[in-house]
Simulated scan of single mutants.
Amino acid sequence: MRELRWATLGCGVIANQLAQAMESKGRKLYAVANRTHAKGVAFAEHYGIGKVYDQIDDVFDDPDVDVIYISTPHNTHIAYLRRALAAGKHVLCEKSITLNSDELREAMDLADANHVVLAEAMTLYHMPVYKKLNDIIASGALGELKLIQMNFGSYKEYDMANRFFNRNLAGGAMLDIGVYALSFVRWFMSSKPDQMLSQVKAAPTGVDEQAGILLTNPDGQMATVTLSLHAKQPKRGTAVFDKGYVEIYDYPRAERATITYVADGHTEVVEAGATDNALAYEVEDMETAIAGDSSVMHLDYTRDVMDMMTEIRCNQWHMYYPEEERA
């Protein structure tokens, strides 16, 4: 199979990490698309990328592009997904992949109709430590999952114009950081939660600033999630089984987990992969999916997480973005 040609749509922090991941594999991005052409040119010059499009939409019409990585703000994703998928491009899209479940279903239908791979760039699904933990769990060493406790809190300055609090840029804790916590929950739970209780504190702009969420699935597994954009918390995830519990810090790109076995209190440190290689793992799994094994991208988990976020944000909190009000 020939080497796939990747284009980045956007040239911010994640795009830089993508370019560096490619370089770590002895490769380069094929092309750059960016709304501000000068920034695209500077990005391409920095990484030795051969093509910069005059207009951002030109990337969709380029027959030489195989995969597009979308790393623009959440509320722009669906418009770019429509163009990319209809043009027959495989797409790896930054989290949150869409604003809501209806948008995601539309994108999934387009991917199916055009026989391409669509996936969310959720790093924890691709970090080797999670795959290693799955093997330990499957062995029965930890018993049955009972509880999950999740924390994610950032301290963002109270600037209501920045993207974290800006309603016009799909700001708020749920789509920015909650997506990580709920993806962790879905990774370990045996099925999607069907019971959801929550409380929310709104920022002055009307987006969610802080939240507490309680989840239960049909198997009786429970999870608690606390989120904040204005109160620092450790990025800590704990999965509690009847024979032991797993603790993971900095869980979105974790390379290390600690298991404590309750029978005698001894601990086991599980290490695999490297945080710095997070984007490289995503690229590898995406190319595996394009080669035929789409299960490694976990779009089913992405769908379940989007359903949870939509139920909580829209149906419980009644918090909508301008794009959703126009729909």
Rank of each mutant, 00 (worst) to 15 (best):
residue 120 E to L: 08
residue 103 E to T: 10
residue 123 T to H: 13
residue 187 W to V: 01
residue 250 D to E: 04
residue 302 T to K: 08
residue 192 K to D: 07
residue 160 M to R: 03
residue 139 S to I: 02
residue 252 P to R: 02
residue 294 S to R: 09
residue 238 T to I: 14
residue 4 L to D: 04
residue 252 P to D: 01
residue 72 T to H: 00
residue 101 S to I: 07
residue 186 R to D: 09
residue 127 M to V: 00
residue 299 L to W: 10
residue 295 S to L: 04
residue 325 E to W: 04
residue 217 N to Q: 00
residue 2 R to M: 06
residue 2 R to C: 05
residue 326 R to C: 04
residue 41 V to W: 07
residue 81 L to Q: 05
residue 53 Y to R: 05
residue 169 L to R: 12
residue 134 N to Q: 14
residue 37 H to A: 12
residue 259 I to M: 08
residue 259 I to H: 06
residue 80 Y to Q: 10
residue 69 Y to A: 07
residue 151 N to Y: 07
residue 14 I to S: 04
residue 311 E to L: 11
residue 286 M to W: 05
residue 91 V to Q: 03
residue 101 S to L: 08
residue 256 R to P: 01
residue 324 E to T: 14
residue 245 Y to N: 14
residue 306 M to C: 12
residue 301 Y to W: 12
residue 229 L to A: 05
residue 314 C to T: 11
residue 316 Q to W: 12
residue 179 V to S: 08
residue 20 Q to H: 09
residue 193 P to R: 11
residue 89 K to W: 00
residue 268 E to G: 04
residue 23 E to F: 00
residue 168 N to P: 09
residue 289 A to N: 02
residue 297 M to A: 00
residue 326 R to L: 07
residue 248 I to R: 00
residue 289 A to F: 01
residue 29 L to N: 01
residue 253 R to H: 02
residue 301 Y to S: 08
residue 178 G to T: 01
residue 150 M to C: 14
residue 255 E to Y: 10
residue 102 D to R: 13
residue 91 V to D: 03
residue 226 T to M: 13
residue 170 A to P: 09
residue 72 T to Q: 00
residue 18 L to I: 07
residue 66 D to A: 01
residue 122 M to E: 02
residue 307 D to Y: 08
residue 271 E to F: 06
residue 98 T to G: 12
residue 176 D to Q: 13
residue 310 T to A: 03
residue 163 R to D: 11
residue 46 H to P: 02
residue 106 E to W: 03
residue 129 V to Y: 03
residue 54 D to C: 13
residue 290 I to C: 12
residue 189 M to D: 13
residue 135 D to F: 09
residue 57 D to N: 10
residue 179 V to N: 12
residue 76 T to K: 12
residue 56 I to N: 13
residue 282 E to A: 11
residue 303 R to F: 11
residue 281 Y to C: 01
residue 71 S to F: 03
residue 54 D to W: 12
residue 58 D to A: 08
residue 227 L to A: 12
residue 113 A to W: 08
residue 264 D to P: 02
residue 324 E to H: 14
residue 62 D to R: 06
residue 32 V to A: 11
residue 98 T to H: 13
residue 43 F to A: 10
residue 32 V to R: 04
residue 152 F to R: 06
residue 128 P to W: 02
residue 134 N to K: 14
residue 130 Y to D: 03
residue 237 G to L: 07
residue 161 A to V: 15
residue 201 K to C: 06
residue 70 I to D: 02
residue 104 L to D: 01
